[in-house]
Design a protein around this nucleic acid. Structure first.
Lengths: 343, 343
DNA sequence: GCCTCCTATGGGAGCGCTCCCAACAATATG
DNA sequence: CATATTGTTGGGAGCGCTCCCATAGGAGGC
C-alpha cells in the first residue's frame, strides 16, 4: 500500500512548494495559472488534507460535539431527539463541520465520557442537551475552556449560552385556549419535574389557568415522556372527571388519547386535549391533536450557529435565545374553529 | 488565558521527561515511584493529552463514523435508528472511542459529505447503514483505503464486511406461522423495494407461503416505512378481504392496525397481523403485535466490534455476520398459544 | 533610471504527540 | 571481576499541516 500523499508530494508533482498547495486548498492568494495546475494534480491524485495534522497546526478541529446525558431507553423513542439531531446535523453540514455524538448510558463510563468530551483537540465546541436539574455536567463544562451552548434552560441560565423554546408561554396559551372553550375542570399531565421543560410547562399552564380563574386542584399527574406513562397518567386522571387536559408532550398525549378511548369517554366532546411539541404527525391520532408547536429543528440549527460564533470568539457575553411556540388548533380540543394553521 | 499544558510541561513538573509521562498515560513500563509522581501531577493539573496531536503521531484517531445516507424526514421517526445508534454508541464508549455522525440530507451537499467521510485523519473507520440498492456510496467507500462495515446487505455482499439480520428467514417464519393458523388469504405490506431489508423480507415471506402452498396473489402493497404508509396500504388491501397480513415493519404495522380498526374488522378474529422488527413496545397496540424480533442493538454493537477488528488488521477477509430473528407471538395473529417469549 | 510597493512564492518553525533507539544503572551470570 | 541482561529513562525524528517571514520579480511613481 502506497504512502498517503501529503502537501509536499502534491507540490512536487505540480512544481510548486507545500505552501502554495496549502494556499490553493485553503483559498489563499495564488496566481490563476499556478492554481489551475495545482488543482489538476489534486483532482488527479485525489489528495485530501489530513484532518488531524490540520487540527494540530491550526488549533481547530472542525468538529462539534453533541452531548446527551442519560440517553437510555425512552430517549430515542421520542421523535424529539431525532428532529433535534437532524437540525443540528444539517447545520453542521452547512458550515462544513462534523458532528460527534456523545451518548451517556448510566453506569460508570459516564465520568470517563464527560472527560472525553472536553479532551483538547477533539472538538471545537459542544452542544449540551437533555440535562436534568442539578446535572453536574454543565457546571463541569463551565469549569473548562471548552466553548459550549445548552439546549434548554440550565439551572444558572445567566452564565451560559443557551437556546430554548418558550415553554412557559406555550403552556400558558394552552391553558387560555382551554379556558376560552368554556372548560372548567382542567387536568394536567406533566413531564418529569427534574427537567426545565417539565417545570416550565407546568408553571406556564398553571399560570394561564390562574389568569382565567381556574385551577387543576388535584387533577395533576407526572409522566416520564413515554407514551405508556401518558396513558397511565390519563387513566388515573379520569377518575376525577376532568373536562380538559394539557399533556406536556405529544408522545404522552398519544397515550392519553388511548386511555380516553379505552374508557369510552369521547374526545373532544367530553374532554378537550391539548399537548406540547407538535412533532407527532397530526393524522396519526383520532381526533387529530391540538398542540403547542415548538420549532425543534430550528432550535438545533440555531444552537450550531450560536456555538460557532462562540468558538470564533464573535460571541463572548452569555446569550439566551428563546424561540416562540405556536398553538396549532386541531380537533382534539373540541374547538369549533376550523382546522388550525398546521392542518 | 494560560497556554494549554503539554507532555513536556507535565514532565518538567514531575521531574521526568516527556517520554516518561507518555508512558504513564499510555500504560508503558515505568517504575512505580515515578508513575505515582507523574500521576499526581496529572491529577493536580488536570492534564489531558491533545487528541489531534495524538492522532497525527499515532495515525489513529479513536473516532469511528456512522454514515446514514438519505436521512431525511421519516428516518428518525422510526425507532429503529434510535436503537441502532444506541447500540453503536454504547459499543464505542466501551472501547473508548468517539462516534461521529454523518447524516446526509438530499441535496448538493451530499457529495461533499461523502468526501468528508473519507478524509484521512478524521475517523479510523466507518459504519454505513440505510443504503439503498445501487447506492454509489458503498462502491465509493470500497475505492478508498478507509475501513468500513455495512449494516444490512449490500448489493455485492461478497466483497465487504457486513452485519445483518436474517430478514429472509424471519419473514419466512412469519408466513409459516400464519399458514399454521389456518389462514389462506395472506396479504403483504412490503418495505421499499430499493432496500435489501425490503427485498429480503418480501422474498422470505413469499417463500414461506409457497412452502405452505399459499400465495398472496395481488394482495400486496408497498409501504415506505412510515406508519401512515402502513395505514394506507392496509386500507387498500382490505378491499381484497385478506384473512392475514405480514407487515414488513412495526411502524407500518401500527398504521395497518389502525386501518383495520377503522374499517370495523376485528383483529385478530377476522385478520391475523404479523410484523417485523419487534421494536414498538407491545403494550402500545391493541391487540398486542405479534412480530419477528430483530436484535437491533446487538447488530450495532457487533458492527462496532467488527469494524475495530478491521481497523486493527485482525480481520482481513470479508466477513458476513447474520443475526437470527425470533418470532414473538402475541395477540395480533390470533394464535391461541399463550403470550409469546417477549410478552 | 532608481526606489518603492505589491503580488506570488518558498521555506523555517512549530503544533503535541508517538515511536524508536541509545544510555545508563542495577542486577545476574560465567 | 568482566560481561551479559534486564529495567528504566531521555531525547531525536517525524507525523502533515498552518503560520509567518523572507525573497524575488514586476509594476508603478518620481
Amino acid at each position: 500500500m502506497a504512502r498517503r500523499l501529503n502537501l509536499e508530494d502534491v507540490g512536487r508533482r505540480a512544481g510548486v512548494s507545500r505552501s502554495t498547495v496549502s494556499r490553493v486548498v485553503n483559498g489563499g492568494h495564488v496566481s490563476s495559472e499556478t492554481k489551475r495546475r495545482v488543482e489538476a494534480v489534486i483532482a488527479e491524485t485525489g489528495y485530501r488534507p489530513h484532518a488531524a495534522a490540520r487540527s494540530l497546526a491550526s488549533n481547530s478541529t472542525g468538529v462539534i460535539g453533541l452531548v446527551i446525558p442519560s440517553a437510555a431507553g425512552t430517549l430515542f423513542d421520542d421523535p424529539y431527539f431525532g428532529r433535534l439531531i437532524l437540525g443540528i446535523s444539517s447545520a453542521t453540514n452547512e458550515v462544513d463541520m462534523t458532528l460527534a455524538l456523545f451518548l451517556f448510558g448510566d453506569g460508570p463510563d459516564e465520568s470517563s465520557i464527560i472527560s472525553r468530551v472536553v479532551t483538547p483537540g477533539l472538538v471545537d465546541g459542544v452542544i449540551v442537551t437533555a440535562t436534568t436539574r442539578g446535572d453536574p455536567l454543565i457546571d463541569h463544562m463551565g469549569g473548562t475552556s471548552m466553548p459550549f451552548v445548552v439546549v434548554g434552560r440550565p439551572d444558572s441560565a445567566g452564565s451560559t449560552f443557551c437556546v430554548d423554546v418558550d415553554n412557559r408561554a406555550g403552556a400558558r396559551a394552552a391553558a387560555l385556549h382551554l379556558a376560552g372553550l368554556g372548560r372548567t375542570r382542567p387536568a394536567l399531565i406533566t413531564a418529569p419535574s427534574n427537567t426545565s421543560a417539565g417545570i416550565d410547562r407546568r408553571n406556564g399552564f398553571l399560570e394561564g389557568l390562574a389568569e382565567a380563574g381556574l385551577s387543576v386542584e388535584d387533577r395533576i399527574q407526572e409522566g416520564d415522556w413515554s407514551q405508556e406513562s401518558g396513558r397511565r397518567a390519563m387513566a388515573r386522571l379520569l377518575a376525577e372527571q376532568p373536562d380538559s387536559v394539557f399533556v406536556s408532550s405529544d408522545r404522552m398525549a398519544v397515550g392519553a388519547l388511548r386511555a380516553i378511548g379505552e374508557s369510552g369517554i369521547n374526545c373532544p366532546r367530553d374532554i378537550s386535549v391539548v399537548s406540547f411539541d407538535g412533532i407527532v404527525p397530526p393524522d396519526l391520532t383520532t381526533p387529530r391533536l391540538t398542540s403547542v408547536v415548538q420549532p425543534v429543528t430550528e432550535v438545533g440549527e440555531r444552537a450550531v450557529r450560536l456555538l460557532t460564533s462562540v468558538i470564533s470568539g464573535a460571541s463572548t457575553t452569555p446569550e439566551h435565545v428563546v424561540f416562540p411556540t405556536e398553538l396549532a388548533v386541531r380537533e382534539s380540543c373540541g374547538s369549533n374553529a376550523p382546522a388550525g394553521p398546521a392542518a
